[in-house]
Amino acid sequence: METTTFPNLFWDENVTEHVSQSSVMVVENIDKIYEIYLPRTLSSSKYVRIIMYIFGYSGNLLAFLLWIRKPMLHSSGCYLAALAMSDLAFLILDLLYSLHTEWGINALNVPILCETFTILYLTTQYTSPLLTLGFTTERYIAIRFPLKSRIYCTPKRAITIVIFLAFLSLALCGIQGYFWTYDSKLKECVRRIDKLEIWESWTWSTEMVMFLTVPVMIMVLNMLIISEIRKSRKIALNLQRILFKTTATTTMLLVVSCFLILTTLPVSIAYALNNSFPPGRIHNSLSDINEDPIWRAHLTYYEAKTIIYNVGLTHYVMNFYIYLVASDTFRRDVLIMLRCKKSARNQSRIHTRSETIKMESFCSNDTF
């Protein structure tokens, strides 16, 4: 979760109505402080992101190509294909963000891109938890109301919901283009100072909903799904019916949604504590900062927040690898795509037939 495109852009106790050169100098001093006192954290963050880009680009692209294939394009597959494309788009935008903020490359101080980057960057972030909420809700309906799943859990309905969620995210983030503007004098992408309070309120509210409320809703639904699975097993035992394991689809989607919760909630908590650990005053000598308790607390918090945020980014990277571990059919289709196993298609069909004879009254018709 990112609360702003360019962090620490205007930290200054005496903010005026217009952008001033002195405020930019304050930012430069703060950046120097981080470079001096947190060199390992900053350098490791750069290279950790490079590793995530390598695995994330390839993984999300392969996942998208696989989920849009006919055998995999059931209702859950529609959500997962959209999620893969959204995560891939986020990682591409995050590369620009990393180049600008961590590598010192002037990648975003460009007219038009300045105003549109935050819109697209936050939209891809908001879409990810919303899509996870979407397929988690569908999975709950499929397990709680199995007879209605054939009505509500269809590819056509899933595509409609995916489009709606994408436009919802874009609508919530569209106003960000008004809050940011390119200053031709400073040649910087800056926030509108006169709209700072509105920006803070809007961004804080929407991000708390997306990265705190939505994950909590997903967690509650997961608990309900697990509860329904246990009830189904008890009923099966009481009726002395053959007990089959939970479908691969349900298991896989539970893992994906739980992983999003585990990686998103700590980031939300870290950003919620942002105002509790503000930076101290800029001293005449940077060495004096080490003796300032306010700065020491802020640097400790900033280091922890950076680590937590980088861990949180993994949910944009790891879904493909979760699919590989959780689904035999997904692994077989990956091998088919990579042309590593000629007989994998026949084995996949046999496996799919065996899955379809499972207790349909207790699980979705989306089986792997």
Rank of each mutant, 00 (worst) to 15 (best):
I350N: 10
E188L: 13
T250W: 08
T352N: 10
E17Y: 12
D366Y: 04
C340Y: 08
S285G: 01
T181S: 08
S149W: 04
P293L: 04
L196C: 07
T246Q: 06
I119W: 07
A84V: 02
T306G: 12
A326G: 02
L133N: 02
L224T: 04
F55C: 10
Y152L: 14
R331Y: 13
S232R: 10
V190M: 09
V27M: 00
I163A: 15
S205A: 14
I225D: 10
L338S: 03
L243I: 08
I307C: 12
I308D: 02
E102I: 02
F244M: 08
V19W: 15
D31L: 10
A158D: 08
R69F: 00
W11Q: 11
E17I: 08
R241H: 12
R49Y: 15
N29F: 07
L262V: 12
F211K: 05
K231C: 07
E188M: 07
L108H: 11
L62E: 02
L83G: 11
S343H: 12
D292L: 01
Y323D: 00
V256A: 15
L186C: 09
F10L: 09
R331W: 14
I226C: 07
L212V: 13
L286V: 04
V15M: 06
L38P: 03
A304P: 01
K156W: 07
I193V: 07
N14Q: 09
L130W: 07
N319W: 14
A270D: 07
K70C: 03
V216Q: 03
L9P: 00
F145A: 14
L147V: 04
T356G: 02
T127P: 00
V325W: 11
S227R: 09
S44A: 15
L62Y: 12
F330H: 13
V162R: 01
V209Y: 13
R40K: 03
G59D: 07
Y53N: 02
M252W: 04
K148V: 01
F211S: 02
L62D: 00
A107V: 03
F179Q: 08
I105L: 14
D183E: 11
M85I: 15
I308H: 07
T367P: 00
A107T: 09
V24I: 15
S364K: 01
E228Q: 06
T206Y: 11
A344W: 06
C78D: 08
A270S: 15
R339M: 06
W180I: 10
E197L: 15
S364R: 02
L172W: 14
R150W: 01
W180Q: 07
I175E: 06
T300L: 13
V15F: 03
T352Q: 06
T367H: 05
N284Y: 05
I225V: 09
E303K: 04
I307S: 09
L9W: 06
K305L: 14
